[in-house]
């Protein structure tokens, strides 16, 4: 950024150029996303239903185990069913997007040889298509609201904000993961393990308020803490997330994006060589 300011030309700044070129190619991006979704929905006989069934099944199992069998619903907020659904749906988007990001460049190898588009398009593609699936899975949330008969308050307006924040955090992470895995395939396995443990380190089954207060702000370094807090704040305006944790989380998201941009800029030439 310094360099841009020094030159006094905002339009010369690499980030501005990157955003502009991606915007110029948004139609191709749309086609690629459509291609992903089309594959998703035509390969399987149940098509769209899988988008609902997968997270629904996961939410149902978690709810049964933790609420009915273990009686641990006090870990979360009540109604616990709604609490779990609000955790599982965005988590599913995160999981799918991150898993896909470990494979983007292997999948796009043929295209990278000749594609004249910015390389980030391939990363945006998997995050957007998994995000669209997330939006398409939102009917589950409405069902959960109907079952638990809970209407959200005015802070529900922060729901889209949470989506934007999740998108940004995922993009930043994918900018690091995708080229790293392309260059060192072993990291793909590591990412999978980290994702599995992250499920328990993220307040999906419990609220941040249940962990010791000293650790809350440390845990909030995980950008998903803020994201999940914002998703839930419409229903539980006071308990969903402490303000200080939200600030930490947003700040850490921004840091991740900056690191992602730098890492990607460094590794891009080597990724192109792999094609």
């Amino acid at each position: 950024m310094d360099a841009c300011v020094r030159r006094g030309l905002a339009s010369d700044c690499p980030i501005v150029i990157a955003v502009r070129t991606i915007w110029e190619h948004r139609q191709v991006l749309r086609m690629l996303v459509r291609r992903d979704l089309q594959r998703q929905y035509t390969t399987f006989r149940l098509g769209y239903l899988w988008t609902l069934l997968e997270p629904l099944g996961m939410a149902a199992v978690l709810w049964f185990v933790f609420s009915v069998l273990l009686g641990a619903r006090s870990f979360g907020l009540s109604p616990y069913l709604l609490f779990i659904v609000l955790g599982v749906l965005p988590w599913w988007w995160f999981l799918k997007g991150m898993r896909a990001s470990t494979k983007v460049f292997r999948r796009a190898r043929g295209e990278l040889i000749f594609s004249l588009l910015p390389t980030q398009i391939w990363i945006l593609r998997v995050i957007i298509s998994s995000g669209i699936e997330f939006v398409l899975s939102l009917p589950i949330l409405i069902i959960a609201m109907a079952i638990t008969q809970s209407i959200p308050g005015p802070l529900i307006v922060l729901f889209p904000v949470a989506m934007v924040m999740q998108f940004i955090a995922m993009y930043g992470l994918a900018l690091i993961i995708a080229p790293a895995v392309a260059l060192t395939p072993d990291l793909g396995r590591t990412v999978r393990i980290v994702l599995r443990s992250l499920f328990y380190f993220t307040p999906i089954l419990y609220t941040l308020g249940r962990i010791p207060e000293v650790l809350q702000n440390v845990a909030a370094i995980n950008p998903l803490v803020g994201v999940f807090g914002l998703y839930r704040i419409g229903w539980w305006p006071d308990e969903a997330i402490p303000p200080s944790a939200l600030v930490v989380s947003v700040a850490s998201t921004l840091v991740i994006v900056v690191i992602g941009v730098i890492v990607f800029h460094r590794l891009e030439p080597r990724v192109l060589k792999e094609a």
Binding site: H25, Q27, V28, M31, L32, R35, E111, F114, S115, L116, L117
Partner: peptide
Amino acid sequence: RHNIYLLGGLLG
């Protein structure tokens, strides 16, 4: 048709 649009798009 879709293939033509996509390939064309990838080529700018």
